[in-house]
């Protein structure tokens, strides 16, 4: 039994250069993320909370190795993603997948969904059993294998998010990064998708980084919470502690916004 966490993020920092304001001065620098750190075990969920510009999507892109950090490390199963060669990284990618907010924007409207779901397999150079694995993934997310032949517009918003999840789990990943994955959905559909994510975690032992601006949603699915503002970590800890006794005024505002009764 190893004690290596599924995902460990150490002192992660990312700056972006903004457009120059003047020829004579240096371009201003925006610190999108500063010193983010956490670790995540298999089957666990970490909620990342913050407003737009807080750095939560930057964190997601760094974890997914879509871009490189200016400092810090992302250790996936003990290996630093940003220290790997392109080829090593490509092979490792099947282990961590992402679900985006807008399922309509992330599915090719001119391709049958079976094709889109199989895309990560093709990217890995896998050619065997594709139809079978697409059918399996569709069943895991509560859809029918025959749906593989349909186009995205034939599905409702909730079903499209199921399709996006099917595509993310088809490589049998150990880690799922969900960026506002339920934010665009109606309340009753949102509950169905959250339950689906929990089912998948129980069945497949998935670890999950769950990014959301909605604390109520985070409370329902996350074990631990990280609150970001302007790239800095305001507080972090077990979800029960942070939500019951928030230390930072910003977290308190978010809690107020999430309550149904005034």
């Amino acid at each position: 039994m190893t004690d290596v966490p599924l995902l460990e993020v150490r002192n992660l920092t990312r700056h972006y250069k903004l457009p120059r304001q003047s020829l004579l001065r240096r371009a201003p620098v925006l610190t999108a993320l500063e010193g983010a750190a956490f670790s995540l075990r298999a089957g666990e969920t970490l909620g990342v909370v913050g407003e737009s510009g807080s750095g939560k999507s930057t964190l997601a892109r760094l974890i997914m190795a879509f871009e490189r950090p200016d400092a810090g490390e992302v250790l996936f199963q003990g290996r630093d993603l940003h220290g790997l060669t392109a080829e090593e990284l490509r092979k490792l990618r099947r282990g961590f997948q992402m679900v985006f907010q807008d399922p309509f924007g992330s599915l090719n409207p001119r391709r049958r969904i079976g094709w889109s779901i199989a895309e990560p397999l093709r990217a890995n150079g896998e050619t065997e059993n594709i139809t079978h694995r697409v059918a399996e993934a569709l069943e895991q997310v509560g859809l029918h294998p025959a749906d593989a032949g349909k186009y995205p517009h034939e599905f409702s918003g909730g079903q499209r998010q199921r399709i996006a999840i099917a595509r993310a789990i088809i490589t049998r990943p150990a880690l799922l990064v969900a960026d506002e994955a339920v934010s665009a959905l109606d309340v009753s559909v949102q509950a169905q998708i959250l339950n689906l994510l929990m089912d998948l975690q129980d069945d497949l032992g998935l670890g999950m980084v769950f990014i959301s601006h909605d604390l109520a949603v985070v409370a329902s699915i996350c074990d631990r919470v990280l609150v970001l503002q302007h790239g800095k970590t305001l507080e972090s800890g077990p979800a029960a502690d942070v939500l019951r006794a928030p230390k930072h005024p910003y977290t308190k505002t978010l809690l107020k916004a999430a309550g149904v009764r005034p």
Partner: peptide
């Protein structure tokens, strides 16, 4: 179906609580 901030995601036995 609306999640409640006051309700934790896991039961006392550590099982994940599903939303109605």
């Amino acid at each position: 179906a609306r999640p409640d901030v006051g309700v934790a995601g896991r039961n006392a036995d550590g099982k994940r609580r599903r939303l109605p």
